[in-house]
Design a protein around this nucleic acid. Sequence first.
DNA 1: CTGTCAGTTAACTTTTTCTTAACCTTAATA
DNA 2: TATTAAGGTTAAGAAAAAGTTAACTGACAG
Lengths: 295, 295
Amino acid sequence: MTNTPLNALRTFEAVARNLSFAKGAEELNVSPAAVSSQIRLLEARLEQPLFHRKGRQITLTEAGKKLLPGVQRGLSELRQAVLKVGMDRSAGVLNISTMPTLLQKWILPRLSDFYEGHAEIDLRINADTGLVNFEQTDFHAAIRFGAGKWPGLKSQKLMDDWILPVCSPEMLRDIGPINSIEDLQGHDLFFVESEVWDSWFRVLGESGRESRWPLLNDSLSILMAAEQGQGIALSRWSLAARDIEAGRLARPIKTVVKTDWSYYFVSPPHFFDLPKVRIFRQWLLDHCASFSTPE
Amino acid sequence: MTNTPLNALRTFEAVARNLSFAKGAEELNVSPAAVSSQIRLLEARLEQPLFHRKGRQITLTEAGKKLLPGVQRGLSELRQAVLKVGMDRSAGVLNISTMPTLLQKWILPRLSDFYEGHAEIDLRINADTGLVNFEQTDFHAAIRFGAGKWPGLKSQKLMDDWILPVCSPEMLRDIGPINSIEDLQGHDLFFVESEVWDSWFRVLGESGRESRWPLLNDSLSILMAAEQGQGIALSRWSLAARDIEAGRLARPIKTVVKTDWSYYFVSPPHFFDLPKVRIFRQWLLDHCASFSTPE
DNA sequence: CTGTCAGTTAACTTTTTCTTAACCTTAATA
DNA sequence: TATTAAGGTTAAGAAAAAGTTAACTGACAG
């Protein structure tokens, strides 16, 4: 069986609705001649005329009258289906992947603000450390810490970060302020095995690194341990800032080391500028801009 | 606003239903590459992917899942609309135009046979002497008496016709058989002004025609007048045969003159071979073939 | 009559769609 | 582990479809 000439049906619908080849042509932004031949094609396919050409005005034949309603229903159904998918570009579900630590310490405290401002977007954040495969999942974007380049993806820098030592305010009272980075090495340091600390250890010199091994391998646990006075944690400003400002953590020494990597908003090109993605991205950027830096 | 890419939607539907580019391509009788680019086009238009390509198997994305049902409904609606019009090609209304006389005297007596054999065809016969304008009406075909050529129309000969004098059986008893055409001129002749009689008057010679004028101008009235013994009618075999065979009319002389014209089935080319038209045409031809000739 | 409007037709151009053929990835097989 | 096959993608070019312009036709209004 030969398939239905869909475009000719659309032309037919426009002409039949206007009862005019010329108006139909105008509506479809084509010449009357194009419309004429499309209709001719459809009539040939159906092996019967669809319009009576009576001088300068046309009317539908019986066949045309019978065809029109179904074609209108069908086309409108298709239009709506496409429209609905289009709508989801600004509203609907927005799936974001990010790292557990950033989610817990930075995003979650700010999230209610987003929900309040954008009820039309159903934001779903997933905590996941590995790389997202955007080809095989429905994630629209991710927030990642890195050098800024991900193959095949568009990215935008959100903010820089700094490494800094933190401990509980009580501990700081007990041991007193620390005046040099070398002094710091006299205490228990918590940190996670990761290249994130490279910048920090470069400042200490290679020897500093060799001598130390991570005691805990989860950034959140480290911060919690520091908060409870168990030692000094090597953390990131982005994760600790809120606790410092709230007085739950203190800085034994003001020295900070900027990390090589930064936070980036990462997304496949076809999602990057989707309205709902753009809205979320802009919201992130605003909050990053007003986020404090460690002096 | 830019319009919906209908053909791409059809491709999408086939691929989504089969969950395979290859199967979809086979179904649409195109190469996988063609399908691939159609989908790519649609995805570009919607600015979001519709399938997850996971190695050798594909799945629908959220957007794809949302799009599919509406597209299926829409396409099926269009298919049905087109199908319904196609159906009408074999069933449905069949509008035929013919001349009042032939309708009355030849078709109507045979019509119940057609209705019995073809209940699916809603035959509507219209009696009309003038030429049918097939462009501006819904007539599918006409039966006309003529030379066999109508511009822009297909025609097929149904049967020849003959001119012959008829009168009531009683009158024939009274005046006795007539032995030559010249004898005939001694009586009152009824005929209708029309070029149909040319063949007849050619046999009589020009003078015959000059002296006679039509007394009645309606073929049916003429036959009725003859039947009631009011004179001799110059009629056509096709119209009188039935009455002759039933004994309501008699032939005062056996001489018949074949007309220049014949009966033709006439139809626009796009209707000529429509199933329902063909069926009716064949039915006519069968009846014409078994219709008697005047010796 | 004449001019105009609406639709058609024909020749030609542009755009879209399809095919072919090489390539890539994944999964099954030797 | 290398090999093969299946399924999808890509690029270049060919084929098909759709569009344009311009001349033509026929109906209608002034």
